[in-house]
């Protein structure tokens, strides 16, 4: 009997300690934009896409996430946007607990995040101005403000003269700049870029990356998923390398790690 009681005592003590630790984490996570705590994600078939990932990204950081296809990069983006739910572990993004967030709070959460895709994802039937204004309409910005914000952000990405062009009439680089303008117009705290240079030539890729660097200097946290080796190596930012769902390296001023 006594032994059992003692065991129970230890268990509760342990639990208390764990709770204390968690509380500490919460406090310290104030300056952390993204906190992944032993996160795993597995789909119904096959091995887990992400396996026991833990990482923190602080406010104002510029982080590359690299790895080849199947490494779990896309799954990571989907988890961060709460498009998917983690199978295990805790995810906190911008102070929201993504395991517990209510369905109707998700839009509110996503309004703090800008997103840029490899394939631009512009609305083909609408002109440049409308494509950017679209993001403002969704968050119900008053029309007056919208009429100021949209031209300003378009000017900042160097598209001041192209309001009326349809996406088809633009080059790939220009289209990605429209997409970037759309991501920025709502002034997000965090900017997620999923292979932003994947469809661009080197010149346009560098233009986009330099813009991202500028945006980062003004305080926006940026996370870029990419496998553009040259850019990663040259920019000397924090690099997190994923392989088969596991973080194999996380370095400040890191470099692209080759497979072999």
């Amino acid at each position: 009997m006594k032994v059992i009681v003692a065991e129970e005592f230890f268990v509760t003590e342990e639990k208390k300690e764990v709770k204390k630790k968690r509380k500490k984490k919460k406090v310290s996570s104030e300056s952390d934009i993204i906190v992944l705590d032993h996160v795993s994600k597995s789909y119904e078939s096959g091995s887990p896409a992400l396996d026991d990932i833990s990482l923190r990204i602080k406010k104002g950081e510029f982080v590359f996430i690299v790895g080849d296809s199947g490494s779990g990069k896309s799954t990571m983006i989907k988890l961060l946007l709460r498009e998917l739910k983690a199978t295990e572990g805790n995810i906190r993004v911008l102070g929201y607990d993504l395991n517990r967030i209510r369905h109707r709070k998700i839009p509110q959460f996503r309004r703090n995040i800008g997103i840029v895709f490899q394939d631009f994802r512009l609305l083909k039937d609408r002109n440049v101005y409308e494509n950017v204004a679209f993001a403002q309409r969704i968050v119900q910005t008053p029309t007056k403000l919208m009429k100021k914000n949209v031209p300003a952000v378009l000017a900042s990405v160097g598209l001041a003269g192209k309001y009326k062009a349809k996406p088809k009439q633009l080059s790939g680089g220009e289209q990605q700049r429209v997409a970037l303008a759309r991501a920025l117009v709502n002034e997000p705290t965090l900017l997620l870029c999923d292979e932003p240079t994947g469809n661009l030539d080197p010149k346009n890729s560098w233009e986009i990356m330099n813009m991202l660097d500028e945006i980062n200097k003004s305080g926006t946290t940026i996370l870029v998923v990419t496998h553009n080796k040259e850019i990663v190596n040259e920019m000397k930012k924090r690099v997190i390398t994923l392989k088969k769902g596991v973080i194999i390296s996380d370095e400040e001023e890191g470099a692209y790690i080759d497979e072999d």
């Binding site: 839009p107 959460f109 996503r110 309004r111 997103i115 609305l123 679209f134 993001a135 969704i138 759309r182």
Partner: peptide
């Protein structure tokens, strides 16, 4: 569908 996906990424409510 694509437009709706983008809308949801940007933070559109279900109602919208």
């Amino acid at each position: 569908r694509e437009e709706i996906t983008i809308m949801k990424y940007i933070g559109a409510t279900d109602f919208f």
